[in-house]
Design a protein around this nucleic acid. Structure first.
Lengths: 131, 131
DNA sequence: TAACTGTATTAACATAACTAGTACACCTAA
DNA sequence: TTAGGTGTACTAGTTATGTTAATACAGTTA
């Protein structure tokens, strides 16, 4: 279901958070749909249940999912998710990266092309890596 | 001379490497110009000399500088620096980030605007944070 | 010679992520 | 009611990495 990079500088639980956010925002996972249980997903991914729990806790804190003891974790209403802070972070991150890119000699044109490519892959659904 | 973020996920030595790369690629530091010594820069930045050394070792390995025992560390010829691998990394990084951005609802237009802004700040020299 | 350079090595420390094990509360279906 | 599923909480230990600390050695320069 997911491709994790265990050697990444980005922690596993954050990778999970990002993946689920994408699945939720793109409505691949729909409102009130149940997420895999902490234990089952841990087994599927061959990682510790605590790591899954940490990701779910984070997703719940940010409003993407809600959890019910004894039942499971479920997707929230997209409309009630506030991601303005995230958007701001991404903007800053993009700016920094583009400054780096310019110093390495990448052209304006080249970067706009990457934007187009990215958008295409998103609209085509390539980014979901469905399994 | 530098602004370091000691709490960043990015290690100090990598921040130093990036800063020096920018200063070298933008020719603020010119060919054969001497870099601050390991010990003096460590004192200026209030960090350990080993951390500076690690950054210099990395810069030398990537061809940005050359070091001479007993004399110091100096800027290499820009023309002989091979940064194709770095450019590739940046491209991948940009792609991933843009996919994230799209999911958060950022528009194509908005991203192109960020590119323009970044380019402007680079050309104006804002990015160097001269001191 | 003295004081500066880079370089190397070893040890200790700090932090964060991750794993492991256990326990408890709740829900659901047999 | 009970068994097995769910989320949740907690403590401890492990691992990896970055950073600091101290020391030593080799080369350069005034």
């Amino acid at each position: 279901m997911f491709e994790l990079d265990l050697r990444s500088r980005q922690p596993i639980y954050e990778q999970l958070v990002d993946k689920f956010k994408q699945l939720i925002m793109s409505e691949v996972l729909q409102q009130d749909e149940q997420l895999p249980s902490v234990r089952s997903l841990a087994q599927d991914l061959s990682i510790n249940p605590n790591t899954i729990q940490k990701a779910y806790r984070e997703l719940e804190a940010q409003g993407y999912i809600y959890s019910v003891k004894g039942k499971g974790s479920f997707v929230s209403q997209i409309s009630q998710i506030d991601n303005t802070a995230e958007i701001k972070e991404i903007r800053e991150h993009l700016k920094r990266l583009m400054v780096e890119a310019f110093f390495l000699g990448m052209t304006n044109q080249e970067m706009k092309q990457i934007i187009e490519e990215s958008q295409t892959s998103v609209l085509k659904g390539d980014a979901y890596d469905p399994d």
